[in-house]
Amino acid sequence: MKKYLIGILFFGLMILLVINNRTPFFQQKSGGWSVGYGSSKVYPKTIQVNQNEIYSIEALKAQNDSTVFLADPFFVKEKDTFYLFFEHKKTKSNADIGLLTSTDGKNYIYRGTVLSQDFHLSYPQVFKYKNEFYMVPESKQANAVLLYKAYRFPFDWRVCDTLLYNIRLKDPSIYISDSLNIMMASDDKLNLYLYEADSLFGKWKLHKKPIALMGTEARAGGRFFADAKGLIIPVQNCTNGYGYGLSLYRLSFNNDNYSMKREVPFFLKGQINIKEFRAGMHQLDIQQLGPNQFYYVYDGNYLKNDSKTFNLWGPLKWTYIDLKNWLFN
């Protein structure tokens, strides 16, 4: 009996060590987020973060002293100006959508708040559709996925449609084209869902295969990118806590079916030699602006200190869901 108990304890200890190795029980404390940006002549296989510019939390605090962080950057380029929209967390409880602009893609100026609601806003995916500018931010606290339209771009954003009602979803990423209209968003249970519609203003519904991913990589981390092979979407990796890293997934459609495959693991992750990004990175927006011209923005988080907090339930839960995802998808 004693040997039997020892065997069970030993086996349990080994399981805990394996879990801790992939999703540590002791996790670092992060601080405020900042954004970085750069360019390349081809779609980058890697991003040399240490060679790019950073618009830091300190830079924004100099313009708005209530700043807590800036994160979730998305950009559009209109004529000769880059418009960079971001989640702006201030000392009040809810975040707003802020704006930075640049004429050269290197030197940005803070332009203030462009959208504020009585609920938390983040993840401001802005895009141009039929010569009008729209935004699909995260509006989870409004219990809906809302579509905003700019009536005086880049300002005066108003709700023009509700894409999904009575649902709390994180980081909705939308792709609109002549042949495909899809949206991905996550719930609080580590499920990434796929929705489809016949147009931007059509009826959005779950795909017949509703869950695309589950577990520690199951939350969108940026805009879809279309290339000759199909679609790429950044997906957050949370194995070492929220905001740890970012992988690239290939989304392939075959008639009414689709598949999701991780193409580049940890395309972005914490940068130990860059103080603003030491804790991790979790957002990417990359677009092709012309022949041999790619531009991208991303965010990262710094460490408050080297101390860590103990989290037992999280790694156990995440590992279970990852295993379930691996077995059934």
Rank of each mutant, 00 (worst) to 15 (best):
V18A: 15
R22P: 01
P24T: 12
F25M: 07
F25N: 05
F26R: 09
F26D: 04
F26C: 04
Q28P: 06
K29F: 07
S34C: 03
S39W: 14
K41Q: 15
K41V: 15
Y43E: 10
P44C: 14
T46P: 03
Q48R: 15
Q48V: 15
V49R: 12
E53C: 14
I57A: 13
E58V: 11
L60H: 08
L60R: 13
K61A: 10
A62Y: 04
T67V: 12
V68Q: 07
F69T: 06
D72I: 13
D72C: 13
D72L: 13
F74G: 08
K77C: 12
K77V: 14
K79Q: 10
T81D: 02
T81Q: 08
F85Y: 06
H88C: 08
K90Y: 04
K92I: 04
S93Y: 08
G98L: 02
L100S: 00
L100C: 01
S102N: 04
T103D: 13
T103L: 11
G105F: 07
N107Q: 10
N107P: 04
N107D: 13
Y108L: 06
Y108H: 06
R111K: 14
T113F: 01
S116T: 08
Q117S: 15
D118M: 05
F119T: 10
F119G: 02
L121S: 01
Y123E: 01
Y123A: 03
P124R: 00
Q125G: 00
F127N: 03
F127W: 05
K130H: 07
K130N: 07
E132A: 09
E132R: 11
Y134H: 02
P137I: 05
